[in-house]
């Protein structure tokens, strides 16, 4: 699903990623760990080109999205991201946070379809009649909004926050915010979700509710790439654990092997500190 090939990234003279290769298969839960400042966030943010890579390829569903000429917005629709600090839209209510992207991109697609149909009718009337080309389907605006709202309500119900639909994010607790942020990315029906330390900014008593939601997603087969310091969670949920250090992947293994039989010296040292 994602094929990272020789990914390199530097900030100024500072080389943060020095050639990272990783394959993420459909249904994988890849957990990324590593010391502070080792480039975990940078790696994750390169996956959806939130940071533009300086070299290498990121093949997502067959397209190299590191290539600056692709329309990255199109691919990001299928690649959700959950941030340490939630990044909910402060000027939108909870339900609008969830609905905004689905409605906006559907309306933009609708506009494009209308434009295409107009062009076809004007210049390709013959081809149309002969059935060589056909008009795009154009959904009704209200139907688009209604469907998005129903889906958002369903998602809110799933996390037990249906009574919070009309409030603003500032009134929510950290755990509630993060769960809304997760369903906001779910609303786009992504093929994969990237998590950057989703529980690091939370009070300890709220970590559980967020991890539980992520475990549910894992059980449903969602493909996930997760940067976290929660080793217990990694052991329980991961299909692969990745150790990033000094800008490269030092070790990659299934969790049992990774934690019980680490090979890299730096990883051994790291694990002895965090476990």
């Amino acid at each position: 699903m994602i094929d990272v090939i020789n990914l390199r990234k530097n900030f100024g003279d500072k080389e943060v990623l020095k050639g990272v290769d990783l394959k993420v298969e459909k249904g994988d839960r890849v957990v990324v760990i590593g010391p502070s400042g080792s480039g975990k966030s940078t790696f994750l943010r390169c996956l959806n080109c939130m940071e533009d890579p300086n070299g290498g390829q990121i093949i997502f569903n067959g397209v190299d999205i590191a290539d600056m000429s692709v329309d990255i917005n199109l691919h990001r629709r299928k690649m959700g991201m959950v941030f340490q600090h939630f990044n909910l839209f402060n000027n939108k209510t909870v339900i609008d946070n969830i609905m905004l992207a689905p409605v906006t991109v559907a309306l933009q697609d609708r506009k494009k379809a209308l434009r295409r149909n107009f062009f076809l009718k004007l210049f390709k009337a013959k081809a149309l009649k002969e059935g060589k080309v056909s008009l795009s389907l154009v959904a009704d605006k209200n139907v688009i909004k209604q469907l998005a709202r129903e889906n958002a309500e369903k998602l809110l119900k799933r996390i037990g926050l249906e009574d919070k639909a009309e409030v603003y994010p500032s009134t929510l607790s950290g755990g509630q915010k993060q769960r809304v942020a997760i369903v906001r990315s779910l609303a786009m029906n992504p093929d994969v979700i990237l998590f950057d330390e989703p529980t690091s900014a939370l009070d300890p008593e709220m970590v559980g509710e967020v991890l539980d939601l992520m475990k549910q997603l894992a059980k449903e087969g969602m493909t996930m790439v997760i940067v976290t310091h929660e080793m217990g969670f990694a052991r329980e949920v991961a299909t692969k654990v990745v150790f990033i250090d000094e800008g490269v992947i030092k070790e990659i293994a299934p969790p049992e092997e990774f934690f019980s039989n680490p090979k890299d010296a730096r990883l051994k040292e790291f694990l002895s500190k965090v476990l």
Binding site: R77, M81, N87, L88, N90, N91, L100, A187, M188
Partner: peptide
């Protein structure tokens, strides 16, 4: 907060759309 722009971009909204709907109103 730059996170507002990132939040918008991460769900596939363009720079322009995120600017107009999220950042500029705030």
């Amino acid at each position: 907060d730059p996170g507002q722009m990132e939040g918008g971009r991460s769900v596939g909204l363009s720079f322009k759309t995120t600017m107009l709907m999220i950042v500029i109103p705030q």
